[in-house]
């Protein structure tokens, strides 16, 4: 696993030096390279703007041969994120059959952010929210904002 540690170190270094847009990345604990804490600012121009989302990235021991596990630690109102405390994300890139070892955490995080800009209601985890997104956008936006207000306000 030495090779994988090396790769993770490298990726982490890259992400900390030049973080993806709207994110700050840090290790959950200095001694464990496999758990990353990411703070994502809701992308401007979306109903998520203003929200601050905490995302956890867990890299399996087999990383990069196996996909990392990415969860929203902050509750979020989104068709592709489970509306519970687990915050599982449905992201094609992370599906085991689609995961390629040459994919990087950075690309994953960018994809997560892109999911907030452009939800994918065709492959939802929350069908009700997906329907609302497709059919009643104002209501959806309102709900997103109320979730932002309730859960995703930056703690000062």
């Amino acid at each position: 696993m030495a090779a994988s540690q090396k790769r993770i170190t490298k990726e982490l270094q890259e992400c900390m030096d030049l973080p993806p847009a709207g994110m700050t990345i840090s290790l959950a604990s200095d001694s464990d390279l496999s758990k990353w804490d990411v703070v994502l600012a809701g992308p401007p121009g979306t109903p998520y703007a203003g929200g601050v989302y905490s995302i956890t990235v867990t890299l399996p021991a087999e990383y990069p041969f196996k996909a990392p596990q990415v969860n929203f630690a902050t509750r979020i109102y989104h068709p592709n994120v489970t509306n519970d405390s687990l915050g599982n994300i449905c992201l094609g890139l992370l599906k085991p059959e689609n995961w390629k070892p040459a994919s990087r955490v950075r690309a994953v995080l960018e994809a997560v952010r892109q999911l907030l800009v452009e939800p994918n209601p065709e492959d939802p985890l929350e069908t009700r929210i997906a329907d609302e997104y497709k059919n009643n956008r104002p209501e959806f936006d309102k709900n997103v904002k109320s979730y932002v207000a309730r859960y995703a306000k930056a703690s000062k």
Partner: peptide, 30 residues
């Protein structure tokens, strides 16, 4: 696409051992 032999060996051996033959493709996303 170019990968180092060590990584390819690690990955493919692992995939074949686990029976995940579908993963034995180019490792570049998409």
């Amino acid at each position: 696409h170019v990968f180092c032999i060590q990584c390819l060996q690690d990955f493919y051996n692992n995939a074949i051992t686990e029976g995940d033959v579908a993963a034995v493709t180019c490792l570049t996303p998409n």
